[in-house]
Amino acid sequence: MTVFHFFNCAILTFGPHAVYYSATPLSEYDTLGTSVKAALVYLGTALVKLVCLATFLKVSETDNFDPYQELLKALIGFIDVAGLYFALTQLTHRNISQNHKFQAVGLGWAFADSVLHRLAPLWVGARGLEFTWDYLLQGLEANANLVLSISLAALGSLMWLRKNKPKTLIPIIYACAGIVATMPSITSYLRRGLGWQFPKVVGFELFTSLVMAFISWQLFSACQRPSA
C-alpha cells in the first residue's frame, strides 16, 4: 500500500483520541496538561513493566499458551493499575473536576499506549506495497483500547477519589476494575490459547469494551446520584 493507506490507518488509530478531546468538555477546560502528564506516567509505567517482564519472564521458544507464564504476565500487567493510581491521585493538577480528570487521564493513557505500540508497526508496515487488513484491525483495536482505558480510569476514580459511594456497589466496582485490568491477558489467552484469528479477537475487544464502558457509565452515574 501507499502513504495514502498509511494515512487512513493513522486516522483510524489516532483520530478518535483527538475527536474525544475536542468533542467533550475536556477541550474547554484545557486539560491537555493532565493528559500529557498521564502519558508521561504511562511511559514510566511501561518502562517498569518492561524491566519486570525481562527479569521474571522466560523467553518462550514456542508460541504456546503457558498458564504459569501468563499468570505472571497478568500480575505484571497490574503495574498498569498502579501507574493509573499514581496518575489519578498523586498528580496535582490545576483545579479540575473529578469528572474531567479521569477522562483526561484515560485519554492520555490510551494515546500514549497507541503511540508506543502501534505507530512504529504502522509506519513500517502500512507504507509497504502489500495490502493486509492487519493495520485497519489494529486501528480498531486502538479504539477499543481507548474506551477500555477511559472505563478503567473512571472505575479507578470511583475507587480512589470518591469517598461517599453506596456500599453495595463497591464489590461490583472492584470486580469490573479487575476485569478491565486483566483484559490484555484475556485477549492474549484467546489469541494463543484458543487460537482465535486477529479479526475475531478485535471484534471481541470492541464488544467487551463497549459493554464495560456501559457498565462503568452506569456505576458512575449511580455513585453520583446520592451525592447530588
Partner: peptide, 10 residues
Amino acid sequence: IYQVASVTFD
C-alpha cells in the same frame, strides 16, 4: 508478488 488494494478502495 504483492496483494494490493486499489486507490478507489483507499
